[in-house]
Amino acid sequence: MQFLGIAVVMNDKCNAHCAHCFGDYGPRKSRLLPSEAIRSLIDQAKDIRAVGREFAVAGGEVFLYWDRLLDVVGYAAANGFAPSITTNGSWATSPRRTERLISALKSSGLVKLEISVDQFHQAFVPIVRIKTLLRAAKESGIPTIMLRCHSTKSMRLDAALTGLDVTDLAGTVIVCAPVVAMGRASTQLPPESFYADMDAPSGACAEGLILTVNVAGDVFPCCAGSELCPPLNLGNLLVSPLSEILRATDDNFLLRALVNAGPSAFLPVIQEMGVGQRLPGRYTNICDLCHRLFSDAQLTAVVSQFAARRRREIADRLGLEAEHATGV
């Protein structure tokens, strides 16, 4: 299994408390992934070919732990990774302060700055701070500046970008993504507000995987919702070496079927086993469907049984013992 790189959730504390947050981060959280664990992760990953060079640092709000953030970015860059960070920009209170912090990150090797800009975040962060941050980031020469916008039917991209003009936006990449009904969003937003137009979303994620480490050190195959699905937990970095965690994915037929065939490949068996009514029938995207399959113990059990049966069938055809059929 190949990963584009690594994403670490450095902290779960955030100075905003957005209704759509799938991680349920907020001001009352206080957990931190130890710096030593992140450094150890970098040390281990730099020599593993299955892990690409992207290194995303996310939270919570990562600027709440400035010294730690600067250290992680610098250490990742020094070890050959391409560091990126995600921030809500709340700390960009003056041009001078913003230029100083951004310049320090650029000097440490930051190659991508992702800024959360949408109506959920702007309930907590004045848009003028985003303008200040964009100006400083462009002047610093950070190669990629990305605005991340989450949308629902009532919280759209056009409203999120009000207050930013083309001078602010030129030279940026705006990534608009629909809010998926998971985490806090599933309890705080009305069901009808989600875009859910696909009956069997096609596509798979084998080429878009990023090894994600949450604030507790648990490792997951992506940062788009797998962290909320215990069956997709690959292991814990504070307990096992990364190489061991990755080696186990080779033998994880269920995971490999999921990422290569896509979650819609499991829909026929869900229907066949008579548990189709546990699914809503309409989905936002493959991440939505994946999350629904693997956050429901009964559906996970059905899918796992199917995967185990398929694996035995393939092993039989190849004349192998199923438990020895690593890589099948």
Binding site: R156, L157, D158, V166, A170, I174, V175, P178, Y195
Partner: peptide, 29 residues
Amino acid sequence: RVARADALDTELIRLPAVNSGITAITVVP
């Protein structure tokens, strides 16, 4: 693509197709 007198077209960025999937809009002068 943008010049100084432009704005992001509101009709475009309101489109359900733009808002409902992962859409990357690269704003290039």
